[in-house]
């Protein structure tokens, strides 16, 4: 139930809402729980609300850590 899904902010709308795209589907979500959201941001959406920004730098950093371990090659060979 605490599922939250990354969505790209397409445009800001009135009344503290934004149009976002989640895997090709567009919907309006509330921005009442966040400040300073802009078009182009990736946000996590939970129960119709954006609850946090996805930080690109941190996302890349985590991937880099994971990829580093992957470079040793397959385990079962």
């Amino acid at each position: 139930m605490c599922l939250a899904i990354p969505a790209e902010v397409v445009e800001l709308r009135e009344n503290e809402t934004a149009l976002v795209e989640i895997g090709g589907v567009r919907k309006v979500v509330s921005l009442m729980l966040m400040d300073g959201v802009e078009a182009g941001d990736y946000v996590l959406v939970h129960a119709g609300f954006a609850i946090e920004r996805v930080d690109r730098e941190e996302a890349e950093r985590t991937l880099a850590v994971l990829e580093e371990a992957a470079e040793y090659g397959p385990l079962y060979e």
Partner: peptide
Amino acid sequence: MRYLDEYRSPALLRGQLRAIRE
């Protein structure tokens, strides 16, 4: 989708499993 699919590569899983086993 960005920030989802990148994390799903099997190579990443194998790398982590190896680190755990080690």
